[in-house]
């Protein structure tokens, strides 16, 4: 990996208008994510698809980041790498001070359990389990004992205002409630980052606003949030927006004047 890192074309920085330069960053406690030269290729029936072509990324603790990009831009691939569901073909990825690129499957499972809270577009709750059981799940894999598990899961559900729905199964909950159960589940193990993949993709706009308020609240309380979305309205809640195109970071901007850019992006990409 080290060799590949040296080969990683940092010269491509010139092609981007990066707000945060990664070259000067030392992975450590203040950085939730440090990624250098991430590359990922897929073999799609003989044709090599270069989904990521050398992405540099650094996210500080407490940041609230949205990752955008048209389909095929590599944002899903990047999310899988950030989420430790996949490993890069080249490049280095530091999560919360640990080098995770090149870890074994089981080690990655452990990192996912401890450091990452997933929120999915389709909620991905276990249908036969109650809200409480769903939220307990990460704690089960963390080896937390029954009583503590129940207590922590209950607290997590109360924090998303679902304290009265502990024993409801997903099909007895509304979409917004389901997503809040998923958020509680993502947060219950106090992860380094909350990683949301199109968190409002299956929700109506009012419920979406609701969920976004929850995210903002979490961010205000110091939670690092990374959200993949293609909806500019949703991305607008983040304080930093990274736009990918063709497997590279196209823009990476802080909140300052980002509304204009966002609407420009919206009309050029989504519209």
């Amino acid at each position: 990996m080290t060799n590949e890192l040296e080969e990683a074309p940092l010269s491509t920085t010139a092609e981007r208008r990066a707000v945060t330069s990664v070259s000067g960053v030392t992975p450590g406690q203040e950085w939730a994510i440090v990624a250098r030269g991430l590359k990922r290729e897929y073999d799609m029936g003989g044709e090599i698809v270069r989904a990521l072509r050398g992405v540099d990324l650094a996210v500080r603790r407490n940041e609230y980041v949205a990752i955008m990009g048209p389909s095929g831009s590599g944002k899903s691939t990047l999310m899988n790498l950030i989420g430790c569901l996949d490993t890069p073909d080249a490049g280095e990825y530091w999560l919360n001070g640990q080098l995770v690129s090149g870890m074994s499957d089981d080690a990655l499972a452990h990192v996912r359990n401890k450091e990452i809270g997933f929120v999915f577009q389709t909620f991905n709750l276990l249908p036969r389990s109650t809200a409480l059981q769903n939220v307990e799940l990460p704690l089960v894999y963390a080896g937390v004992s029954g009583d503590e598990r129940r207590q922590r899961a209950t607290e997590a559900l109360e924090s998303v205002e679902l304290g009265s729905r502990l024993d409801h199964r997903p099909n007895e909950l509304s979409g917004g409630q389901r997503q809040r159960v998923a958020i509680a589940r993502a947060l219950v193990n106090r992860p380094a980052i909350l990683l949301a993949d199109e968190p409002t993709g299956n929700l109506d706009s009012r419920t979406s606003e609701d969920i976004m308020r929850v995210f903002s609240g979490l961010s205000d309380h110091g939670q690092t949030v990374i959200m993949v979305t293609h909806e500019p309205d949703i991305a607008a809640h983040a304080r930093r927006v990274i736009v990918l195109r063709d497997g590279l970071v196209e823009t990476d901007e802080r909140r300052e004047n980002f509304h204009e850019r966002l609407s420009a992006f919206g009309s050029s990409v989504v519209g």
């Binding site: 499957d105 499972a109 996912r112 359990n113 997933f118 991905n124 799940l137 990460p138 894999y141 963390a142």
Partner: peptide
């Protein structure tokens, strides 16, 4: 399969 994916995402190892 989806459930297995979720469990893995939440930290289930192979042996789990």
């Amino acid at each position: 399969t989806a459930e297995i994916g979720v469990r893995k995402a939440l930290g289930a190892r192979r042996r789990d």
